[in-house]
């Protein structure tokens, strides 16, 4: 494990833990951006710079902003201040999460993973990605486009004010 990876992992985990424990929703969303930045760095480190930038673009700039606006729109001061941020069955939730984590760890350590890494001449280029998308994955691309359109229209309809 290299130092760089450890630092980046620390950033990601800090963000993640922060978003789990911070009391105010806005703070949580902000710490979510930290996680995304960390992840984007990891992607770049893993020779996928386009995805890293895409992540920053989509999540940090679009999704997070969206979430922040939602927080703004659903602001409810009493809950934020008076009530505990955790729901009632939180212990059970922690146990479930813990057991899933334990199972995953166990599997990772048991798995026969090849430690070696194939060297790449250059990081994955946008050009080659685009070629694959336009040739082999053109149908999924179309489907995804349709899905996004549908989701967008659905979101508008769901969030629209009731005419009545």
């Amino acid at each position: 494990m290299s130092l760089t990876f450890a630092i980046i992992a620390a950033i990601v985990l800090t963000g993640a833990i922060g978003l789990s424990v911070l009391r105010k929703t806005v703070h949580c969303v902000l710490s979510l951006t930290i996680v995304f930045f960390g992840l984007a760095m990891l992607y770049i480190r893993l020779d996928a710079p386009f995805l890293g930038f895409a992540l920053v673009l989509i999540y940090v700039s679009a999704v997070t902003i969206l979430i922040l606006f939602t927080v703004l729109l659903t602001r409810n001061r009493e809950i934020e201040t008076d009530v505990s941020p955790y729901s009632r069955g939180s212990i059970a939730g922690l146990i479930v999460g813990g057991s899933v984590f334990a199972g995953l760890i166990w599997m990772i350590y048991r798995a026969p993973l090849s430690r070696g890494i194939t060297e790449l001449e250059s990081p994955a280029s946008v050009k080659s990605l685009g070629e694959r998308l336009m040739t082999e994955y053109v149908l999924p691309l179309e489907v995804i486009a349709l899905l996004l359109t549908a989701a967008m229209i659905g979101a508008v309809i769901v969030a629209m004010k009731d005419p009545g």
Partner: peptide, 18 residues
């Protein structure tokens, strides 16, 4: 795995829908 478990815990534990 850590991230996933943390995400699961957040989903299960926090009471705010967002």
């Amino acid at each position: 795995a850590l991230l996933f478990s943390l995400g699961l815990c957040v989903t299960l534990v926090r009471r705010h829908a967002i």
